[in-house]
Nucleic acid binder design. Structure first.
Lengths: 205, 205
DNA sequence: ATAGTTTGTCACTGGTCAGTGACTTTTGTT
DNA sequence: AACAAAAGTCACTGACCAGTGACAAACTAT
């Protein structure tokens, strides 16, 4: 092997991503990483000072969520006018994006079992994204009185995350089939419907 | 130790529950179970034919969810009249109950990583409970047209499960503090509000 | 070119794990 | 009392794991 420290470090970092995406965090150990990278494990200790520091470094390179920029960078391209439209748009985009991100899903699974360098980093960026989204939404229209929009968002996002994580393991949940686009279609409609009903001002009792 | 096969089997099963509740499924191995039960591990193979069969047996003794009976056994004791009231009542009871069930939570975590004897059993009972609930709700009032109540329920239940599992590991989610009763209060209100808005017939446009 | 440092290889320790075979002790049956 | 089956003990294998120390090869600065 060519003696190239930078290259070796890159291979190790890449191996972390590949293992996470393909086999999950369960099998993410020093030995497995070294094997995957085709590198001696002692280099992990030498270059990264152990697994925790390696994970921290991996986290920093992270690109685990879409950004507000990518979401609404060009507002005019999005067909949404009302607060309801925007919130629906953001949540469905978030869901679609999450489904594509194997690594992010894996870190979210991890987060349910223990906190570590990776999950903390991910959680921080996620919360920031949610905060930005809420601020953005506020600019699109006043939140209805008496509705705790952050709490409602938390419930819906939590639901989306759970369904996404679970769908990778089990086909169905509560009788809904998540192996078919129809199942996801029902969830999308349900989300849209919930947002619409909940955010709409109730002028008549 | 007294030579009592039945007693020994009971100790082993009890050890599974204790380990699950206290240390999670990660540490649930043959060695750990035998150690916890104060029993030689070879007996696990002799009496249960290995870990998978032991888990299956553990699952059958299961009492992992509340039953419809316990929920609405005495309907007159519940202050709920409308469909909305009932659905809110069921979901909040479900949430409160889940928070108390360490073993169930642990199996739900497990379910997000892999399927096994325990998670399959749990999922089956859970789905049956949800089905019964929906049937019960239907007896309390027609579902509003154009609303996919099962899908909406799935989203809300998924959200509740995710928030419950996550709260055991991290204090906050999207800025909401789940270590305080106030945080959970906000979630409860949000759920009630979502159900109310979504199920309510919209007579005025 | 030579000395020192960096890069990478290798072999090892001590620990945990699942699983098995051989053993002793108790119990119940005849 | 004798014997067989059941209950429980013990010691071991082979595999994997994290982490470390000793070493060889290559590059660099003098």
């Amino acid at each position: 092997m060519a003696r190239d420290k930078a290259e070796t470090k890159a291979r190790i970092l890449a191996a972390v991503g590949k293992l996470l995406a393909e086999s999950g965090f369960k099998s993410l150990g020093v030995n497995a990483i070294a094997r995957e990278a085709g590198v001696d494990k002692v280099l992990i200790y030498r270059y990264f000072d152990g697994l925790p520091m390696l994970l921290r470094q991996f986290a920093q390179a992270g690109d685990y969520w879409l950004t507000m920029e990518a979401l609404v960078g060009d507002e005019s391209a999005v067909e949404a006018s009302t607060l309801t439209d925007w919130m629906t748009y953001l949540l469905l985009e978030f869901m679609g994006d999450l489904q594509e991100r194997s690594i992010t899903q894996e870190i979210l699974r991890w987060e349910l079992l223990e906190g570590n360098e990776l999950t903390n980093e991910l959680a921080q960026v996620r919360d920031q994204l949610a905060l930005d989204s809420l601020k953005f939404l506020k600019s699109k229209g006043e939140f209805p009185e008496g509705q705790d929009v952050p709490a409602i968002s938390a419930v819906l996002i939590a639901g989306v995350v759970y369904l996404t994580l679970r769908a990778k393991i089990h086909r169905t949940f509560l009788g809904i089939d998540f192996s078919s686009p129809q199942g996801w279609q029902r969830i999308e409609s349900a989300l849209a419907s919930i947002i619409q009903s909940t955010l709409q001002e109730q002028e008549c009792s």
